[in-house]
Every structure is written in C-alpha cells, then in structure tokens.
C-alpha cells in the first residue's frame, strides 16, 4: 500500500510542522541576545525574570481559571445540544444547526463590543464572569459541532435498547452515550479550552479590573516590545502540558490494566 505510506508520511510531516514554531520558542527562550533576530549564546536570565514577574503570573492564573470553566460549561452544553439534535426529528433541524453556529459568523470584535454594551446595560461588573460568558459564546459552536458530528453517528435505536434493558435516562447517558462519545467529548473540551486560553479579542472588551488574561497582557506589551521571558513562558507551558499528558497517560494505562485484570 504505497498510498498509505505517502499519507502517513504527510501526516507525520504535519506533526513536525506543528512543532516547528514551538521548537523555535524553546530555543530562543535561552537566547542571550534579548531579541529574536539573532542568536548570541545561552542564558537562563529570561526564566529568572519570568518568575519574578508577578503580574505575568497573575494573568496566567486568570487565563487558566477562565479556560477551565469555559471549556467545561461549553462541553456540557454541547453534549446536551448534540444529543438533543441527534434525537430531534421535527422540523427546523437546519435552523437549530444554524443557530448554534451563528456566533461563528460574527466577527469577534463585533460580538465583543456588543456584549460589552449588554453587560453595561445590565450592570454586570466586568471580570471573570463576563470573560467566561464571552469565551463561552465563541467556543460553544466549536464544541457543539465537534460533538454533533460524532453524535450523529450514534445508532438511533440505542436509547430504546437501553430503556428496554432497564436503564434510567441518566444511566443511558453515563453507560451508553458517554463512553461512545468520549473521544469527541475530549476533543470538544480541548478545543474549547484552547479557544478560551488563547482568545484576545473578546477578552479585550470583557475583562475588568484585575482580570487581565495572559494573551491580553502579551498583546498590550507589543508597543514596548515582547520580552524574551514571554518565550520562556511559552516554553514552560509546553513542558508543563507534556508532563501532565504523560502523567495522565500513565495513570490511564494503569487503570486500563487494572480493569482488564479484574
């Protein structure tokens, strides 16, 4: 199967492509030159500066909190919507689909400014809550569309079969749907988390006193120039993620082994 080999080759190339800038970020985070335009030997100075930068660390924390809440809420709503739509047989399916995808069509700056007016009219103070709501509306379509393409594949006779076997609706969900949807749930959560974590535009308009997110901090420091400690932070985030992935991966492996033995 030579075509398969070519396809695999291209796919591996894609993974390399994805990590090219990451490699550059890591390499340049040790660059003594203080600018990305040339390389002048190694230093740990930027990491030291990074940990002394309390304001930057604070923004990282804000971003992480907002992203976790956003991703969890978006995925939960997305699961419900995808399952509901997969079982919905009435008219207006297409309209429902268009409705959930609608926020995607609106440029974020428009939505951001408009939401800002809504929040100010309703006297909701700007902060973590408004950030989550803003990020929710941009990540919900992503999460839902990912989940829907998977939910649509489920056999429509599943719920009846489960009910016949004596499952309550909640059991049907946890024992039948959730395991089948799990890859899509993971994909949806990750996509929403990432969307929220890297959002600039919505955050610009919806952040309030003391709730500056990491991308906002970085974006606003462009006028005075990006410091190399931003590279160091980028490198650290990647390393941290890889460590978590490995840890989770190992624990999951163990669970699978334990379960298969019992």
């Amino acid at each position: 199967m030579t075509v398969d080999r070519v396809v695999n080759g291209i796919a591996r190339g894609v993974f390399v492509f994805l990590y090219i800038p990451i490699a550059a970020v890591i390499v340049y985070s040790f660059n003594a030159a203080g600018t990305n335009t040339r390389f002048e030997g190694l230093t740990l100075q930027w990491y030291v500066e990074l940990f002394q930068d309390a304001a930057l660390m604070q923004t990282l924390q804000t971003s992480a909190i907002v992203a976790v809440i956003t991703a969890t809420v978006a995925t939960a709503i997305g699961i419900m919507f995808a399952l509901g739509l997969a079982r919905y047989r009435g008219r207006g399916r297409a309209s429902l689909l268009a409705l959930i995808a609608l926020p995607l069509i609106v440029p974020e700056i428009v939505l951001g400014v408009a939401m800002l007016s809504v929040f100010s009219a309703t006297k909701i103070p700007l902060g973590i809550l408004t950030l989550v709501l803003g990020h929710l509306i941009v990540s919900l379509p992503l999460a839902t569309l990912v989940l829907m393409s998977s939910a649509a594949m489920l056999d429509p006779s599943l719920p009846e079969a489960a009910t016949d076997l004596g499952c309550t609706p909640w059991q049907t969900f946890t024992r039948v749907y959730f395991p089948l949807l799990r890859p899509a749930v993971v994909a949806a959560w990750l996509l929403s988390f990432t969307t929220s974590f890297s959002n600039i535009v919505m955050s610009t308009f919806l952040s309030g006193v003391g709730s500056t997110t990491l991308p906002l901090k970085i974006y606003s420091s462009l006028k005075t120039g990006l410091t190399p400690s931003i590279n160091a932070l980028g490198a650290l985030l990647i390393l941290l993620t890889l460590v978590i992935v490995l840890l989770v991966g190992v624990s999951q492996m163990r669970r699978i082994l334990v379960e298969s033995r019992s």
Binding site: I65, V66, I69, I128, T130, V132, G208, V209, S211
Partner: peptide
C-alpha cells in the same frame, strides 16, 4: 464551584 468562586472574585474586586 468554579463559577461561584469566579462570581465571588469579580464582586470582591470592586
């Protein structure tokens, strides 16, 4: 819990 915490944070920051 997260949402409640967030609400608490925002209302305190004033």
């Amino acid at each position: 819990v997260g949402i409640v915490a967030a609400l608490a944070l925002t209302s305190c920051s004033a």
